[in-house]
Lab assay of single mutants.
Amino acid sequence: RSTHNEMEKNRRAHLRLCLEKLKGLVPLGPESSRHTTLSLLTKAKLHIKKLE
């Protein structure tokens, strides 16, 4: 059980790190620190579409 908890903790930490990296790559506007994961991913998707 503790192994599972540790793996889950590591998974969440990795996900958080990846989202922070994404936040640095996507133009978010003036309220960049107030975005939810969903809004960050939505803006990333729109940004990628613009680049295509």
Results as ranks from 00 to 15, higher is better:
residue 6 E to F: 09
residue 35 H to A: 12
residue 26 V to Y: 03
residue 51 L to I: 01
residue 3 T to N: 12
residue 21 K to A: 03
residue 42 T to R: 13
residue 9 K to E: 08
residue 25 L to D: 00
residue 27 P to L: 14
residue 22 L to Y: 00
residue 18 C to W: 12
residue 45 K to D: 02
residue 50 K to L: 11
residue 17 L to P: 07
residue 17 L to W: 11
residue 20 E to F: 04
residue 25 L to I: 06
residue 2 S to D: 10
residue 42 T to F: 05
residue 41 L to S: 02
residue 2 S to K: 05
residue 4 H to P: 13
residue 21 K to Q: 02
residue 26 V to H: 04
residue 22 L to V: 05
residue 49 K to H: 01
residue 51 L to Y: 06
residue 38 L to N: 13
residue 18 C to I: 14
residue 49 K to P: 08
residue 45 K to F: 02
residue 19 L to D: 00
residue 43 K to A: 06
residue 46 L to A: 15
residue 5 N to C: 12
residue 27 P to F: 07
residue 50 K to E: 03
residue 52 E to N: 11
residue 14 H to C: 07
residue 47 H to N: 13
residue 32 S to T: 04
residue 27 P to K: 15
residue 3 T to P: 08
residue 32 S to V: 09
residue 24 G to Q: 15
residue 4 H to A: 10
residue 36 T to A: 10
residue 12 R to F: 06
residue 29 G to T: 06
residue 37 T to A: 13
residue 35 H to F: 08
residue 14 H to S: 11
residue 8 E to R: 03
residue 50 K to A: 04
residue 4 H to D: 14
residue 23 K to R: 10
residue 49 K to R: 11
residue 37 T to F: 15
residue 34 R to W: 10
residue 34 R to T: 05
residue 25 L to R: 02
residue 38 L to S: 10
residue 4 H to M: 12
residue 2 S to L: 06
residue 43 K to N: 04
residue 41 L to T: 00
residue 15 L to E: 02
residue 12 R to W: 12
residue 35 H to M: 07
residue 43 K to D: 01
residue 7 M to I: 06
residue 8 E to H: 06
residue 7 M to Q: 13
residue 19 L to S: 02
residue 13 A to K: 05
residue 23 K to G: 01
residue 12 R to P: 10
residue 2 S to W: 01
residue 8 E to T: 08
residue 50 K to Q: 05
residue 52 E to L: 13
residue 46 L to S: 08
residue 6 E to Y: 08
residue 43 K to M: 06
residue 39 S to V: 03
residue 40 L to E: 02
residue 48 I to V: 11
residue 30 P to T: 12
residue 47 H to V: 15
residue 30 P to F: 15
residue 44 A to M: 09
residue 18 C to K: 00
residue 19 L to W: 15
residue 24 G to I: 06
residue 7 M to V: 07
residue 51 L to H: 15
residue 23 K to P: 00
residue 27 P to C: 14
residue 3 T to I: 06
residue 14 H to G: 10
residue 7 M to K: 05
residue 38 L to E: 06
residue 8 E to C: 06
residue 19 L to P: 00
residue 24 G to R: 14
residue 46 L to K: 15
residue 29 G to W: 13
residue 18 C to V: 13
residue 4 H to V: 12
residue 41 L to N: 02
residue 32 S to L: 13
residue 5 N to S: 12
residue 34 R to C: 08
residue 2 S to Q: 06
residue 12 R to I: 05
residue 51 L to Q: 09
residue 33 S to Y: 13
residue 19 L to F: 08
residue 22 L to P: 01
residue 4 H to C: 10
residue 6 E to S: 13
residue 48 I to D: 04
residue 32 S to G: 12
residue 15 L to D: 04
residue 15 L to G: 04
residue 41 L to F: 08
residue 17 L to E: 12
residue 2 S to F: 04
residue 18 C to F: 03
residue 37 T to M: 15
residue 28 L to N: 07
residue 27 P to E: 07
residue 44 A to C: 09
residue 48 I to R: 03
residue 35 H to I: 07
residue 14 H to D: 02
residue 27 P to G: 15
residue 49 K to Q: 03
residue 5 N to K: 11
residue 47 H to D: 01
residue 47 H to Y: 15
residue 23 K to S: 02
residue 28 L to Q: 06
residue 13 A to S: 10
residue 46 L to I: 13
residue 1 R to N: 15
residue 17 L to S: 14
residue 38 L to P: 11
residue 48 I to S: 03
residue 12 R to A: 05
residue 32 S to R: 13
residue 25 L to W: 13
residue 22 L to H: 00
residue 46 L to V: 11
residue 43 K to I: 01
residue 36 T to M: 11
residue 34 R to P: 06
residue 32 S to D: 04
residue 28 L to R: 14
residue 35 H to S: 13
residue 32 S to W: 11
residue 9 K to M: 07
residue 42 T to L: 09
residue 35 H to W: 11
residue 34 R to E: 01
residue 41 L to Q: 01
residue 5 N to E: 15
residue 13 A to F: 07
residue 49 K to S: 06
residue 28 L to T: 13
residue 42 T to S: 12
residue 27 P to M: 13
residue 49 K to Y: 04
residue 34 R to A: 07
residue 35 H to C: 12
residue 19 L to M: 04
residue 40 L to F: 14
residue 14 H to Q: 11
residue 50 K to V: 02
residue 26 V to W: 14
residue 34 R to L: 11
residue 33 S to N: 12
residue 28 L to P: 06
residue 39 S to Q: 07
residue 40 L to W: 14
residue 15 L to F: 09
